[in-house]
Design a protein around this nucleic acid. Structure first.
Length: 515
RNA sequence: CGGGGAGUGGCGCAGUGGUAGCGCACCUGCUUUGGGGGCAGGCGGUCGGGGGUUCAAAUCCCCCCUCCCCGACCA
Protein backbone atom coordinates (compact mmCIF):
# COMPACT_ATOMS: atom_id res chain seq x y z
CA UNK A 1 0.00 0.00 0.00
CA UNK A 2 1.24 3.38 -0.91
CA UNK A 3 0.71 6.50 1.08
CA UNK A 4 0.73 9.64 -0.99
CA UNK A 5 1.44 11.83 1.95
CA UNK A 6 4.62 10.85 3.63
CA UNK A 7 3.62 12.91 6.60
CA UNK A 8 0.61 10.77 7.14
CA UNK A 9 0.64 9.25 10.49
CA UNK A 10 -1.74 6.50 11.06
CA UNK A 11 -2.13 4.23 13.94
CA UNK A 12 -3.48 0.81 13.63
CA UNK A 13 -5.07 -0.51 16.70
CA UNK A 14 -6.30 -3.91 17.40
CA UNK A 15 -9.36 -4.28 19.56
CA UNK A 16 -8.69 -4.10 23.29
CA UNK A 17 -8.24 -7.79 23.79
CA UNK A 18 -5.31 -7.86 21.47
CA UNK A 19 -3.65 -4.69 22.60
CA UNK A 20 -2.48 -5.88 25.90
CA UNK A 21 1.18 -6.69 25.93
CA UNK A 22 1.75 -10.34 25.72
CA UNK A 23 4.19 -10.23 28.57
CA UNK A 24 7.43 -12.03 28.30
CA UNK A 25 5.95 -15.31 27.36
CA UNK A 26 6.75 -15.07 23.72
CA UNK A 27 10.07 -15.28 22.06
CA UNK A 28 11.32 -15.39 18.56
CA UNK A 29 12.45 -18.49 16.90
CA UNK A 30 15.67 -17.97 15.32
CA UNK A 31 15.98 -19.49 12.36
CA UNK A 32 14.88 -21.81 9.93
CA UNK A 33 16.40 -24.88 11.18
CA UNK A 34 20.04 -24.59 10.45
CA UNK A 35 20.78 -26.37 13.66
CA UNK A 36 18.71 -29.25 12.58
CA UNK A 37 19.99 -29.35 9.07
CA UNK A 38 22.55 -31.92 9.85
CA UNK A 39 20.98 -35.19 9.08
CA UNK A 40 22.31 -38.01 7.01
CA UNK A 41 20.57 -38.03 3.74
CA UNK A 42 19.57 -41.48 2.63
CA UNK A 43 20.56 -41.42 -1.00
CA UNK A 44 21.97 -44.82 -1.68
CA UNK A 45 23.25 -44.03 -5.12
CA UNK A 46 25.66 -41.43 -3.88
CA UNK A 47 29.15 -42.39 -2.98
CA UNK A 48 29.11 -40.74 0.34
CA UNK A 49 26.28 -39.66 2.51
CA UNK A 50 25.87 -35.92 2.54
CA UNK A 51 24.35 -33.79 5.20
CA UNK A 52 20.72 -33.17 4.55
CA UNK A 53 19.76 -29.66 3.69
CA UNK A 54 16.36 -29.89 5.30
CA UNK A 55 14.96 -31.37 8.46
CA UNK A 56 13.32 -34.62 7.31
CA UNK A 57 9.54 -34.48 7.21
CA UNK A 58 9.23 -37.50 9.45
CA UNK A 59 11.42 -35.84 12.04
CA UNK A 60 9.51 -32.57 12.35
CA UNK A 61 7.07 -31.56 9.64
CA UNK A 62 6.61 -27.93 10.69
CA UNK A 63 10.36 -27.51 10.87
CA UNK A 64 10.70 -29.05 7.42
CA UNK A 65 8.23 -26.48 6.17
CA UNK A 66 10.23 -23.67 7.73
CA UNK A 67 13.42 -25.03 6.23
CA UNK A 68 11.84 -25.17 2.79
CA UNK A 69 10.68 -21.57 3.11
CA UNK A 70 14.23 -20.43 3.71
CA UNK A 71 16.19 -22.79 1.51
CA UNK A 72 13.95 -22.56 -1.51
CA UNK A 73 13.86 -18.79 -1.03
CA UNK A 74 10.08 -18.59 -0.93
CA UNK A 75 9.24 -16.16 1.86
CA UNK A 76 10.24 -14.85 5.22
CA UNK A 77 8.66 -12.97 8.06
CA UNK A 78 8.14 -9.25 7.70
CA UNK A 79 9.22 -6.79 10.39
CA UNK A 80 5.73 -6.55 11.90
CA UNK A 81 4.36 -9.67 13.48
CA UNK A 82 2.35 -11.78 11.12
CA UNK A 83 3.48 -10.05 7.98
CA UNK A 84 5.19 -11.82 5.15
CA UNK A 85 7.82 -10.95 2.60
CA UNK A 86 7.25 -13.05 -0.48
CA UNK A 87 10.50 -13.59 -2.31
CA UNK A 88 10.73 -13.79 -6.09
CA UNK A 89 10.51 -17.55 -6.36
CA UNK A 90 7.57 -17.72 -3.97
CA UNK A 91 5.94 -14.90 -5.83
CA UNK A 92 6.40 -16.71 -9.12
CA UNK A 93 4.40 -19.61 -7.72
CA UNK A 94 1.61 -17.30 -6.61
CA UNK A 95 1.72 -15.45 -9.91
CA UNK A 96 1.25 -18.70 -11.75
CA UNK A 97 -1.71 -19.58 -9.56
CA UNK A 98 -3.21 -16.16 -10.06
CA UNK A 99 -3.00 -16.42 -13.81
CA UNK A 100 -4.72 -19.81 -13.92
CA UNK A 101 -7.39 -18.94 -11.39
CA UNK A 102 -8.03 -15.59 -13.02
CA UNK A 103 -8.58 -17.22 -16.39
CA UNK A 104 -11.11 -19.62 -14.92
CA UNK A 105 -12.90 -16.83 -13.08
CA UNK A 106 -13.25 -14.93 -16.31
CA UNK A 107 -14.48 -18.08 -18.03
CA UNK A 108 -17.17 -18.18 -15.37
CA UNK A 109 -18.22 -14.73 -16.49
CA UNK A 110 -16.90 -12.53 -13.71
CA UNK A 111 -15.05 -9.27 -14.27
CA UNK A 112 -12.22 -7.83 -12.22
CA UNK A 113 -12.61 -4.59 -10.31
CA UNK A 114 -11.07 -2.97 -7.25
CA UNK A 115 -12.50 -1.75 -3.98
CA UNK A 116 -10.81 0.19 -1.16
CA UNK A 117 -8.57 -1.18 1.54
CA UNK A 118 -10.15 1.06 4.18
CA UNK A 119 -13.73 0.45 5.19
CA UNK A 120 -15.77 2.66 7.54
CA UNK A 121 -16.10 0.77 10.77
CA UNK A 122 -19.85 1.25 10.74
CA UNK A 123 -20.13 -0.89 7.59
CA UNK A 124 -18.91 -3.93 9.44
CA UNK A 125 -21.48 -3.46 12.13
CA UNK A 126 -24.42 -3.60 9.79
CA UNK A 127 -24.49 -7.37 9.53
CA UNK A 128 -24.67 -8.86 12.99
CA UNK A 129 -23.12 -12.27 12.35
CA UNK A 130 -20.51 -10.82 10.07
CA UNK A 131 -19.21 -8.36 12.61
CA UNK A 132 -19.40 -10.90 15.35
CA UNK A 133 -17.30 -13.27 13.29
CA UNK A 134 -14.67 -10.74 12.33
CA UNK A 135 -14.38 -8.25 15.16
CA UNK A 136 -11.74 -10.23 17.05
CA UNK A 137 -9.39 -10.08 14.09
CA UNK A 138 -9.88 -6.56 12.82
CA UNK A 139 -7.14 -3.97 12.44
CA UNK A 140 -8.63 -0.53 12.93
CA UNK A 141 -7.10 2.76 11.85
CA UNK A 142 -7.91 5.49 14.34
CA UNK A 143 -5.57 8.26 13.21
CA UNK A 144 -4.72 9.81 9.84
CA UNK A 145 -3.07 13.01 8.77
CA UNK A 146 -1.96 13.58 12.31
CA UNK A 147 -5.48 13.69 13.63
CA UNK A 148 -7.84 11.31 15.27
CA UNK A 149 -10.45 10.19 12.79
CA UNK A 150 -14.12 10.94 13.34
CA UNK A 151 -14.94 7.41 12.36
CA UNK A 152 -12.34 4.66 12.61
CA UNK A 153 -11.46 2.80 9.42
CA UNK A 154 -11.27 -0.93 9.34
CA UNK A 155 -8.57 -2.50 7.21
CA UNK A 156 -10.62 -4.91 5.13
CA UNK A 157 -10.74 -8.46 6.45
CA UNK A 158 -12.94 -9.20 3.40
CA UNK A 159 -15.03 -6.87 1.28
CA UNK A 160 -18.67 -7.94 1.40
CA UNK A 161 -19.64 -4.71 3.11
CA UNK A 162 -17.98 -2.11 0.88
CA UNK A 163 -18.82 -4.00 -2.24
CA UNK A 164 -22.47 -4.20 -1.29
CA UNK A 165 -22.54 -0.47 -0.70
CA UNK A 166 -21.68 -0.07 -4.39
CA UNK A 167 -23.70 -3.00 -5.65
CA UNK A 168 -26.72 -1.26 -4.18
CA UNK A 169 -26.00 1.70 -6.46
CA UNK A 170 -25.15 -0.29 -9.55
CA UNK A 171 -27.94 -2.80 -9.35
CA UNK A 172 -31.23 -1.43 -10.62
CA UNK A 173 -32.94 -3.99 -12.74
CA UNK A 174 -33.21 -7.74 -13.18
CA UNK A 175 -31.52 -6.96 -16.51
CA UNK A 176 -28.34 -6.14 -14.55
CA UNK A 177 -28.24 -9.65 -13.20
CA UNK A 178 -26.24 -11.66 -12.69
CA UNK A 179 -23.71 -9.13 -11.46
CA UNK A 180 -20.38 -10.93 -11.30
CA UNK A 181 -17.39 -9.14 -9.81
CA UNK A 182 -13.99 -10.31 -8.64
CA UNK A 183 -11.10 -8.49 -7.07
CA UNK A 184 -7.49 -9.39 -6.39
CA UNK A 185 -6.46 -7.76 -3.16
CA UNK A 186 -4.72 -7.94 0.15
CA UNK A 187 -6.72 -8.38 3.31
CA UNK A 188 -5.85 -8.19 6.98
CA UNK A 189 -6.94 -10.43 9.79
CA UNK A 190 -5.22 -10.06 13.12
CA UNK A 191 -3.90 -13.56 13.51
CA UNK A 192 -2.59 -14.89 16.77
CA UNK A 193 -0.39 -17.57 15.36
CA UNK A 194 0.96 -16.66 11.97
CA UNK A 195 2.67 -19.14 9.69
CA UNK A 196 4.14 -18.17 6.35
CA UNK A 197 1.59 -18.57 3.57
CA UNK A 198 -0.77 -20.59 5.76
CA UNK A 199 -1.91 -17.95 8.18
CA UNK A 200 -0.50 -14.45 8.06
CA UNK A 201 -2.00 -11.23 9.29
CA UNK A 202 -1.91 -9.75 5.84
CA UNK A 203 -2.49 -12.08 2.93
CA UNK A 204 -3.32 -11.91 -0.73
CA UNK A 205 -6.34 -13.41 -2.34
CA UNK A 206 -9.08 -13.02 -4.84
CA UNK A 207 -12.58 -12.43 -3.59
CA UNK A 208 -15.53 -12.83 -5.88
CA UNK A 209 -18.85 -11.17 -5.13
CA UNK A 210 -22.00 -11.74 -7.11
CA UNK A 211 -25.69 -10.88 -7.23
CA UNK A 212 -28.38 -13.10 -8.69
CA UNK A 213 -32.11 -12.99 -9.27
CA UNK A 214 -32.91 -16.07 -7.24
CA UNK A 215 -31.51 -18.23 -4.51
CA UNK A 216 -31.18 -21.11 -6.94
CA UNK A 217 -29.16 -19.00 -9.35
CA UNK A 218 -26.88 -17.85 -6.57
CA UNK A 219 -26.40 -21.36 -5.23
CA UNK A 220 -25.67 -22.70 -8.71
CA UNK A 221 -23.07 -20.05 -9.23
CA UNK A 222 -21.38 -20.64 -5.88
CA UNK A 223 -21.13 -24.32 -6.75
CA UNK A 224 -19.92 -23.57 -10.25
CA UNK A 225 -17.05 -21.57 -8.79
CA UNK A 226 -16.32 -24.34 -6.30
CA UNK A 227 -16.04 -26.99 -8.98
CA UNK A 228 -15.18 -25.32 -12.28
CA UNK A 229 -12.79 -22.75 -10.93
CA UNK A 230 -11.36 -23.98 -7.65
CA UNK A 231 -11.51 -27.74 -7.80
CA UNK A 232 -10.54 -27.75 -11.45
CA UNK A 233 -7.56 -25.50 -10.82
CA UNK A 234 -6.36 -27.45 -7.82
CA UNK A 235 -6.57 -30.81 -9.46
CA UNK A 236 -5.52 -29.91 -12.99
CA UNK A 237 -2.90 -27.24 -12.44
CA UNK A 238 -1.32 -27.80 -9.06
CA UNK A 239 -2.10 -31.50 -8.84
CA UNK A 240 -3.66 -31.22 -5.41
CA UNK A 241 -6.58 -33.59 -4.91
CA UNK A 242 -9.33 -31.97 -2.89
CA UNK A 243 -12.37 -33.11 -1.00
CA UNK A 244 -15.29 -30.82 -1.73
CA UNK A 245 -18.19 -30.47 0.62
CA UNK A 246 -20.40 -28.31 2.80
CA UNK A 247 -19.23 -26.61 5.98
CA UNK A 248 -21.08 -27.14 9.23
CA UNK A 249 -22.82 -24.15 10.81
CA UNK A 250 -19.90 -23.95 13.18
CA UNK A 251 -17.33 -23.64 10.40
CA UNK A 252 -19.40 -21.46 8.13
CA UNK A 253 -18.34 -17.99 6.93
CA UNK A 254 -19.71 -15.29 9.21
CA UNK A 255 -22.77 -13.89 7.49
CA UNK A 256 -23.32 -16.71 4.99
CA UNK A 257 -26.23 -19.13 4.69
CA UNK A 258 -23.99 -21.88 3.40
CA UNK A 259 -20.28 -22.36 2.85
CA UNK A 260 -18.73 -24.94 0.56
CA UNK A 261 -15.07 -25.84 0.69
CA UNK A 262 -12.15 -27.55 -1.01
CA UNK A 263 -10.11 -29.45 1.56
CA UNK A 264 -6.73 -30.96 0.82
CA UNK A 265 -4.62 -33.42 2.78
CA UNK A 266 -1.08 -32.29 3.49
CA UNK A 267 2.00 -34.51 3.69
CA UNK A 268 1.54 -34.95 7.42
CA UNK A 269 -2.10 -35.98 7.09
CA UNK A 270 -3.53 -32.70 8.31
CA UNK A 271 -6.21 -30.89 6.36
CA UNK A 272 -5.88 -27.50 4.74
CA UNK A 273 -8.83 -25.49 3.54
CA UNK A 274 -7.73 -24.42 0.07
CA UNK A 275 -10.73 -22.42 -1.01
CA UNK A 276 -14.30 -21.57 -0.08
CA UNK A 277 -17.46 -20.50 -1.85
CA UNK A 278 -20.43 -19.03 0.01
CA UNK A 279 -24.10 -18.63 -0.53
CA UNK A 280 -24.79 -15.33 1.23
CA UNK A 281 -28.49 -15.43 0.66
CA UNK A 282 -29.96 -11.96 1.15
CA UNK A 283 -28.14 -11.21 4.38
CA UNK A 284 -25.89 -8.47 3.08
CA UNK A 285 -28.40 -7.30 0.48
CA UNK A 286 -30.86 -6.54 3.24
CA UNK A 287 -28.52 -4.45 5.33
CA UNK A 288 -27.02 -2.60 2.36
CA UNK A 289 -30.26 -2.37 0.50
CA UNK A 290 -29.02 -4.18 -2.57
CA UNK A 291 -32.25 -4.44 -4.50
CA UNK A 292 -33.46 -4.76 -8.07
CA UNK A 293 -36.75 -4.45 -9.91
CA UNK A 294 -38.11 -7.76 -11.13
CA UNK A 295 -39.80 -8.34 -14.47
CA UNK A 296 -43.09 -7.70 -12.75
CA UNK A 297 -41.86 -4.43 -11.31
CA UNK A 298 -41.43 -5.53 -7.70
CA UNK A 299 -38.45 -4.67 -5.55
CA UNK A 300 -36.49 -7.68 -4.45
CA UNK A 301 -33.26 -8.15 -2.54
CA UNK A 302 -30.43 -9.67 -4.55
CA UNK A 303 -29.32 -13.22 -3.84
CA UNK A 304 -25.58 -13.22 -3.37
CA UNK A 305 -22.43 -15.29 -3.32
CA UNK A 306 -18.82 -14.69 -2.38
CA UNK A 307 -15.80 -16.91 -2.84
CA UNK A 308 -12.05 -16.81 -2.44
CA UNK A 309 -8.69 -18.49 -2.67
CA UNK A 310 -5.55 -17.05 -1.15
CA UNK A 311 -1.80 -17.23 -0.89
CA UNK A 312 -2.48 -20.08 1.48
CA UNK A 313 -2.59 -22.24 -1.62
CA UNK A 314 1.15 -21.77 -1.96
CA UNK A 315 1.58 -23.36 1.44
CA UNK A 316 -0.81 -26.12 0.43
CA UNK A 317 1.15 -26.82 -2.70
CA UNK A 318 4.38 -27.08 -0.75
CA UNK A 319 2.97 -29.36 1.93
CA UNK A 320 1.22 -31.55 -0.59
CA UNK A 321 4.08 -32.25 -2.97
CA UNK A 322 7.22 -31.41 -1.04
CA UNK A 323 9.62 -34.15 0.06
CA UNK A 324 12.79 -34.38 2.11
CA UNK A 325 14.80 -32.85 -0.71
CA UNK A 326 12.57 -29.83 -1.01
CA UNK A 327 9.73 -28.63 -3.18
CA UNK A 328 8.27 -30.54 -6.06
CA UNK A 329 6.46 -28.12 -8.29
CA UNK A 330 3.95 -29.52 -10.78
CA UNK A 331 5.10 -28.71 -14.33
CA UNK A 332 1.95 -26.82 -15.24
CA UNK A 333 2.63 -24.34 -12.47
CA UNK A 334 6.44 -24.42 -12.44
CA UNK A 335 8.00 -21.02 -13.16
CA UNK A 336 10.96 -23.03 -14.39
CA UNK A 337 10.03 -26.36 -15.91
CA UNK A 338 13.48 -27.42 -17.05
CA UNK A 339 16.88 -26.30 -15.93
CA UNK A 340 19.81 -27.04 -18.21
CA UNK A 341 22.81 -27.44 -15.99
CA UNK A 342 26.35 -27.11 -17.30
CA UNK A 343 28.35 -29.58 -15.26
CA UNK A 344 31.73 -28.35 -16.40
CA UNK A 345 32.25 -25.95 -19.25
CA UNK A 346 34.78 -28.01 -21.14
CA UNK A 347 34.91 -29.45 -24.62
CA UNK A 348 31.98 -27.33 -25.67
CA UNK A 349 29.57 -28.43 -22.95
CA UNK A 350 28.66 -24.83 -22.18
CA UNK A 351 27.77 -24.07 -25.77
CA UNK A 352 25.83 -27.27 -26.15
CA UNK A 353 23.83 -26.52 -23.01
CA UNK A 354 23.06 -22.99 -24.17
CA UNK A 355 21.92 -24.29 -27.52
CA UNK A 356 19.70 -26.89 -25.89
CA UNK A 357 18.14 -24.33 -23.55
CA UNK A 358 17.43 -22.06 -26.46
CA UNK A 359 15.87 -24.88 -28.39
CA UNK A 360 13.61 -25.89 -25.51
CA UNK A 361 12.54 -22.30 -24.93
CA UNK A 362 11.66 -22.00 -28.57
CA UNK A 363 9.50 -25.06 -28.10
CA UNK A 364 7.53 -23.28 -25.38
CA UNK A 365 9.19 -24.94 -22.39
CA UNK A 366 9.97 -22.62 -19.49
CA UNK A 367 13.70 -23.24 -19.43
CA UNK A 368 16.59 -21.83 -17.44
CA UNK A 369 20.25 -22.21 -18.29
CA UNK A 370 22.53 -22.64 -15.31
CA UNK A 371 26.11 -22.03 -16.34
CA UNK A 372 27.10 -20.26 -13.15
CA UNK A 373 30.59 -20.56 -11.83
CA UNK A 374 29.68 -22.48 -8.73
CA UNK A 375 30.25 -26.08 -7.73
CA UNK A 376 28.00 -28.47 -9.57
CA UNK A 377 26.62 -30.10 -6.45
CA UNK A 378 25.55 -26.83 -4.96
CA UNK A 379 23.72 -25.83 -8.07
CA UNK A 380 22.03 -29.21 -8.44
CA UNK A 381 20.81 -29.09 -4.86
CA UNK A 382 19.47 -25.60 -5.31
CA UNK A 383 17.25 -26.60 -8.22
CA UNK A 384 16.18 -29.67 -6.34
CA UNK A 385 15.15 -27.53 -3.37
CA UNK A 386 13.18 -25.29 -5.66
CA UNK A 387 11.42 -28.26 -7.11
CA UNK A 388 12.16 -27.68 -10.77
CA UNK A 389 10.52 -30.70 -12.45
CA UNK A 390 13.36 -31.65 -14.79
CA UNK A 391 17.09 -31.13 -14.77
CA UNK A 392 19.20 -31.69 -17.83
CA UNK A 393 22.86 -32.01 -16.91
CA UNK A 394 25.45 -31.60 -19.61
CA UNK A 395 29.16 -32.09 -19.11
CA UNK A 396 32.04 -33.26 -21.29
CA UNK A 397 31.21 -36.92 -20.66
CA UNK A 398 27.58 -36.49 -21.72
CA UNK A 399 28.55 -34.45 -24.73
CA UNK A 400 30.99 -37.10 -25.91
CA UNK A 401 28.05 -39.48 -26.06
CA UNK A 402 25.73 -36.91 -27.59
CA UNK A 403 23.49 -37.17 -24.54
CA UNK A 404 22.35 -35.25 -21.49
CA UNK A 405 21.69 -36.66 -18.05
CA UNK A 406 18.00 -36.19 -17.48
CA UNK A 407 16.82 -36.11 -13.86
CA UNK A 408 13.16 -35.96 -12.92
CA UNK A 409 12.58 -34.25 -9.62
CA UNK A 410 9.50 -36.17 -8.54
CA UNK A 411 11.15 -39.60 -8.51
CA UNK A 412 14.81 -38.58 -8.53
CA UNK A 413 15.50 -40.94 -11.42
CA UNK A 414 18.45 -40.25 -13.69
CA UNK A 415 18.57 -41.29 -17.28
CA UNK A 416 20.99 -40.66 -20.11
CA UNK A 417 19.04 -39.30 -23.06
CA UNK A 418 20.11 -38.40 -26.63
CA UNK A 419 20.25 -34.64 -27.07
CA UNK A 420 18.36 -34.60 -30.32
CA UNK A 421 15.40 -36.42 -28.82
CA UNK A 422 14.87 -33.96 -25.98
CA UNK A 423 12.60 -31.43 -27.69
CA UNK A 424 10.00 -34.15 -28.12
CA UNK A 425 10.81 -36.09 -24.95
CA UNK A 426 10.59 -33.17 -22.52
CA UNK A 427 6.94 -32.24 -23.08
CA UNK A 428 5.97 -35.88 -22.59
CA UNK A 429 8.05 -36.11 -19.47
CA UNK A 430 6.54 -32.95 -17.99
CA UNK A 431 3.16 -34.42 -18.59
CA UNK A 432 4.15 -37.66 -16.85
CA UNK A 433 5.47 -35.74 -13.87
CA UNK A 434 2.31 -33.69 -13.63
CA UNK A 435 0.23 -36.86 -13.51
CA UNK A 436 2.59 -38.65 -11.15
CA UNK A 437 2.53 -35.87 -8.58
CA UNK A 438 -1.24 -35.76 -8.58
CA UNK A 439 -1.43 -39.52 -8.46
CA UNK A 440 0.90 -39.73 -5.50
CA UNK A 441 -1.05 -37.12 -3.57
CA UNK A 442 -4.31 -38.84 -4.44
CA UNK A 443 -2.94 -42.16 -3.26
CA UNK A 444 -1.84 -40.72 0.05
CA UNK A 445 -5.21 -39.17 0.61
CA UNK A 446 -6.96 -42.48 -0.04
CA UNK A 447 -4.52 -44.46 2.05
CA UNK A 448 -4.93 -42.14 4.99
CA UNK A 449 -8.68 -41.83 4.97
CA UNK A 450 -10.58 -44.24 7.16
CA UNK A 451 -14.23 -44.99 7.72
CA UNK A 452 -15.09 -44.62 11.36
CA UNK A 453 -18.04 -46.16 13.14
CA UNK A 454 -17.52 -44.33 16.40
CA UNK A 455 -16.24 -40.93 17.49
CA UNK A 456 -13.20 -42.56 19.05
CA UNK A 457 -12.37 -44.24 15.78
CA UNK A 458 -12.74 -40.93 13.98
CA UNK A 459 -10.42 -39.21 16.44
CA UNK A 460 -7.96 -42.02 15.99
CA UNK A 461 -8.14 -41.74 12.23
CA UNK A 462 -7.54 -38.01 12.47
CA UNK A 463 -4.16 -38.66 14.05
CA UNK A 464 -2.78 -39.66 10.67
CA UNK A 465 -5.27 -38.37 8.15
CA UNK A 466 -8.97 -38.03 7.46
CA UNK A 467 -11.84 -40.02 8.86
CA UNK A 468 -15.34 -40.37 7.52
CA UNK A 469 -18.15 -40.71 9.97
CA UNK A 470 -21.91 -40.47 9.83
CA UNK A 471 -23.10 -36.92 10.38
CA UNK A 472 -25.54 -36.34 13.25
CA UNK A 473 -26.95 -32.94 12.40
CA UNK A 474 -27.55 -31.16 15.68
CA UNK A 475 -25.88 -33.92 17.68
CA UNK A 476 -22.80 -34.08 19.85
CA UNK A 477 -20.32 -35.31 17.23
CA UNK A 478 -18.75 -32.01 16.33
CA UNK A 479 -18.37 -30.86 19.91
CA UNK A 480 -16.72 -34.10 20.93
CA UNK A 481 -14.32 -33.96 18.00
CA UNK A 482 -13.44 -30.33 18.70
CA UNK A 483 -12.48 -31.25 22.24
CA UNK A 484 -9.75 -33.39 20.73
CA UNK A 485 -8.63 -30.68 18.28
CA UNK A 486 -10.31 -32.53 15.46
CA UNK A 487 -12.66 -30.57 13.24
CA UNK A 488 -15.35 -31.40 10.74
CA UNK A 489 -13.75 -30.36 7.47
CA UNK A 490 -16.88 -30.80 5.44
CA UNK A 491 -20.04 -32.77 4.91
CA UNK A 492 -20.62 -34.91 1.85
CA UNK A 493 -23.34 -37.08 0.45
CA UNK A 494 -22.94 -40.82 0.21
CA UNK A 495 -22.18 -40.54 -3.49
CA UNK A 496 -19.50 -37.89 -2.87
CA UNK A 497 -21.48 -34.97 -4.21
CA UNK A 498 -21.85 -31.83 -2.13
CA UNK A 499 -24.93 -31.31 0.04
CA UNK A 500 -26.98 -28.14 -0.10
CA UNK A 501 -27.87 -28.15 3.58
CA UNK A 502 -26.48 -29.69 6.73
CA UNK A 503 -29.74 -31.40 7.58
CA UNK A 504 -29.91 -33.55 4.47
CA UNK A 505 -30.30 -37.20 5.43
CA UNK A 506 -27.39 -39.66 5.46
CA UNK A 507 -24.57 -37.18 5.21
CA UNK A 508 -20.98 -38.13 5.89
CA UNK A 509 -18.66 -35.89 7.87
CA UNK A 510 -15.03 -35.79 6.79
CA UNK A 511 -13.04 -34.99 9.90
CA UNK A 512 -9.37 -34.22 10.51
CA UNK A 513 -6.89 -32.11 12.33
CA UNK A 514 -6.39 -28.96 10.34
CA UNK A 515 -4.03 -26.08 9.73
C1' C B 1 -4.78 -14.05 27.18
C1' G B 2 -3.20 -19.23 29.61
C1' G B 3 1.27 -22.55 29.56
C1' G B 4 6.56 -23.00 27.91
C1' G B 5 11.26 -20.77 25.80
C1' A B 6 14.73 -16.94 23.92
C1' G B 7 17.23 -12.16 22.53
C1' U B 8 25.44 -12.14 20.97
C1' G B 9 27.97 -10.69 12.93
C1' G B 10 23.22 -12.16 7.35
C1' C B 11 21.74 -17.26 9.70
C1' G B 12 22.70 -20.94 13.64
C1' C B 13 25.30 -21.03 18.20
C1' A B 14 29.37 -20.84 22.34
C1' G B 15 30.82 -17.63 25.92
C1' U B 16 28.52 -17.12 34.44
C1' G B 17 33.10 -10.70 36.02
C1' G B 18 38.91 -9.23 32.75
C1' U B 19 37.17 -5.73 27.26
C1' A B 20 33.86 -11.11 22.09
C1' G B 21 34.53 -16.25 19.55
C1' C B 22 33.02 -20.70 16.35
C1' G B 23 30.25 -22.93 12.11
C1' C B 24 27.64 -21.65 7.78
C1' A B 25 27.00 -17.67 4.45
C1' C B 26 29.63 -13.50 2.12
C1' C B 27 34.34 -11.23 -0.43
C1' U B 28 39.47 -12.19 -2.85
C1' G B 29 42.97 -15.58 -5.02
C1' C B 30 44.36 -20.39 -6.48
C1' U B 31 42.48 -25.31 -7.75
C1' U B 32 41.10 -31.25 -12.15
C1' U B 33 33.36 -27.51 -10.18
C1' G B 34 30.02 -35.09 -12.39
C1' G B 35 25.67 -34.09 -5.67
C1' G B 36 25.88 -28.21 -0.61
C1' G B 37 34.41 -29.66 -3.95
C1' G B 38 39.51 -28.31 -1.77
C1' C B 39 43.37 -24.79 0.04
C1' A B 40 44.79 -19.89 1.59
C1' G B 41 43.54 -15.03 2.93
C1' G B 42 39.68 -11.50 4.30
C1' C B 43 35.04 -8.29 5.47
C1' G B 44 31.48 -8.14 9.14
C1' G B 45 29.07 -7.29 16.07
C1' U B 46 26.80 -0.01 20.16
C1' C B 47 26.24 -8.65 22.86
C1' G B 48 17.38 -6.21 22.36
C1' G B 49 16.89 -1.12 25.21
C1' G B 50 17.56 1.77 29.76
C1' G B 51 19.33 2.08 34.66
C1' G B 52 22.30 0.00 38.70
C1' U B 53 26.52 -2.86 41.25
C1' U B 54 31.94 -3.11 40.20
C1' C B 55 38.59 -0.99 39.11
C1' A B 56 36.15 -3.95 35.19
C1' A B 57 29.55 -6.38 32.85
C1' A B 58 27.48 -10.26 27.06
C1' U B 59 28.05 -12.30 32.07
C1' C B 60 25.35 -10.03 38.49
C1' C B 61 20.65 -6.88 40.00
C1' C B 62 16.14 -3.87 38.55
C1' C B 63 12.77 -1.98 34.81
C1' C B 64 11.18 -2.06 29.81
C1' C B 65 10.79 -3.91 24.68
C1' U B 66 10.52 -7.73 21.21
C1' C B 67 10.09 -12.39 19.18
C1' C B 68 9.16 -18.01 18.83
C1' C B 69 6.56 -22.68 20.33
C1' C B 70 1.77 -25.22 22.43
C1' G B 71 -3.75 -23.73 23.27
C1' A B 72 -8.19 -20.76 22.10
C1' C B 73 -9.62 -17.65 16.67
C1' C B 74 -8.99 -18.07 11.47
C1' A B 75 -8.43 -17.99 3.98
Amino acid sequence: MCLANSQLKSAVRAPPTWRKPVGDGAKRTRGLGATRARYRRPVASLRMAKKSVLTPQSEDFPQWYQDVMAKAELAENGPARGTMVIRPYGWALWEGMQAEVDRRIKDAGAQNAYFPLFIPESYLHKEAEHVEGFSPELAVVTHGGGKKLDEPLVVRPTSETVINAYFSKWLQSYRDLPLLINQWANVVRWELRPRLFLRTTEFLWQEGHTCHASEDDARDYALRILHDVYENFMVEVIGVPVVTGLKTANERFAGADQTWTCEAMMGDGKALQMGTSHLLGQNFAKVFDTQFLTETGEREYAWQTSWGVSTRMVGGLIMTHGDDAGLRVPPKLAPIQVVVLVVRDEDGAGDAAAALAKQLKAGGIRTELDNRDAPFGRRAVEWELKGVPVRLEIGPRDLAEGTATMVRRDKGEKESTPLDGLPTRIPQLLDEIQKALHQQAQQRQEDRTVDAATVDEAIDGARTGFARIKWDNGGELEKRLNQESVSVRCLRRQDGSVPLATDEPDLVAVVARAY
